[in-house]
Design a protein around this nucleic acid. Structure first.
Lengths: 104, 104
DNA sequence: GTATATGATTAAAAAATTTAATCAAAAACA
DNA sequence: TGTTTTTGATTAAATTTTTTAATCATATAC
């Protein structure tokens, strides 16, 4: 899995040590690290907790720009706007953006 | 899986429709939704992208706060909308909402 | 009242995961 | 250096999990 190697080595652990912490064999942990097999969701959550990262980060699905960070607040009105905007036909989205800029 | 049901029904999709989008059978999608089986990591990422949420949110590894879902992904275009909306005079916000509803 | 759509269930097949054992190479040590 | 230990990789077999088509019961639509 994308970031298991860097996270484990940063901690100075061997595969056998990390495997024991996760209650799996060294072979299994090696498979995870090299993408031969994948941990279950429960194991993903445990790995993410152990390494103090999000599951999204662990599996390489983070998108720094496109993610609402914990603590950022969005009103229900703003949430409604996003919902309505997403429901628009693709072709209407750009004109809508122009309109919104114009009425500033 | 924890939040598949609410995300699918919010979109007004049937299991068969959602299953077709994910390229699996309805039975498989039903299994995911009811926690009988679990999607692969690749499928988790595809589901999260389709529903515009983080994988952490999808699997119930983040908490909701207020009306906002932690980890909800927002495109740069959507981020721009929020920025512009926030810049509007207070008095313009409600009429703007009406407009957005009207053009659906 | 019949037809259609929906979510759930089943059993069998297919696919993926796990494990113990083992290997080769590197590191540690005397 | 030569030996021992540690490490990550590999193998094959057993187990577990997932997937699917078919079907069911129920609800909704016509």
């Amino acid at each position: 899995m994308i970031r298991l190697f860097e996270l484990r080595t940063e901690k100075g652990l061997s595969q056998r040590e990390a495997a024991r912490i996760m209650n799996v064999s060294q072979g299994t942990y090696n498979n995870w690290e090299n993408g031969k097999t994948q941990p279950s969701i429960e194991q993903l959550i445990a790995l993410a907790a152990f390494f103090s990262v999000s599951v999204d980060y662990l599996i390489g699905n983070t998108d720094e720009y496109g993610t609402v960070r914990a603590g950022e607040s969005i009103s229900s009105e703003e949430r409604e706007i996003l919902k309505l905007f997403r429901a628009l036909p693709e072709a209407s989205k750009a004109p809508f953006m122009e309109f919104l800029k114009k009425i500033q």
